[in-house]
Design a protein around this nucleic acid. Sequence first.
DNA 1: TATTAGTCTTTATAAAATATCATAAATGAA
DNA 2: TTCATTTATGATATTTTATAAAGACTAATA
Lengths: 143, 143
Amino acid sequence: MESKKLLQLAHAACKERGARLTAVREQVFLLMAENEGAIGAYDLLDKLQKIDPSAKPATVYRALDFLAKQGFVHKIESINSFLLCDHFSDCHHPVQLLICDNCGSVEEIQSNNLDLALRAMADASGFTINHQVVEAHGKCQNC
Amino acid sequence: MESKKLLQLAHAACKERGARLTAVREQVFLLMAENEGAIGAYDLLDKLQKIDPSAKPATVYRALDFLAKQGFVHKIESINSFLLCDHFSDCHHPVQLLICDNCGSVEEIQSNNLDLALRAMADASGFTINHQVVEAHGKCQNC
DNA sequence: TATTAGTCTTTATAAAATATCATAAATGAA
DNA sequence: TTCATTTATGATATTTTATAAAGACTAATA
Ligand SMILES: [Zn+2]
Ligand SMILES: [Zn+2]
Ligand SMILES: [Zn+2]
Ligand SMILES: [Zn+2]
């Protein structure tokens, strides 16, 4: 199972960083890993409640917060959902997404030029970037 | 008054396009134009209700939808707020924003390189972009 | 073991956005 | 003008998304 391998990687990364990948967080990580593509917090909660019926919105949001801080998960601002990172070994990379409005698929891309162009513009305005949201909407190859 | 001039431009643009800038829409446009920086839908509703106490959330959201479609207003996905466009004569330009997390100021920038880099990456994946969300968070020059 | 920082549970609420359906206004064709 | 069609609004309710607050618990460490 792919998701088990990912979980191992996550455990290793957390150990290295002294971060605590607790049972709830692990469970949410697995659900994210098993899920194809992006998922909303409340849909994720539904899945979690099948395993732990006492789970509440805060349970999921806290776990997602943690996973996002570790760089395992990205929040997609424009569709209020969450996505397992394609390459979370490199934990704080700039996030650039292609979101198909037809089929809902999300592809994570990596363009240095894009990052550089954005930083160049920011510099020109004396602006220091901490975090960037780059989400392109449109139609994917399959659609 | 700057906002009155902007309103005239908006009226002209709508006339040209056969779009109906109705009383509510005009009022919301003016409130946006008079407002410094970005504003949330419900804060805008508060302002609107001082003029028209019967205004409801849907009133504001519908007006904002219209204004956004005309390119007069941009939605900022990462902070759930709205901003009058800096240069709405060019109505469907790519939107690129620098958002200060300290003082809340938002600067609209225009980088062709950024747009090109994003399109290049999308092309490489066979993806066709309809709409792009580019929002950089960090610290502005003043902060 | 005692301290401490972090995490979890629960309950409640806030914030953001949309659905629905009835009514009204504008537009365009006859 | 009149009628039909489209478009916009008003009003009510609800859905969806996200956070606050307070106390109990847990793991790490010293
Ligand atoms: Zn990633
Ligand atoms: Zn698609
Ligand atoms: Zn603009
Ligand atoms: Zn600032």
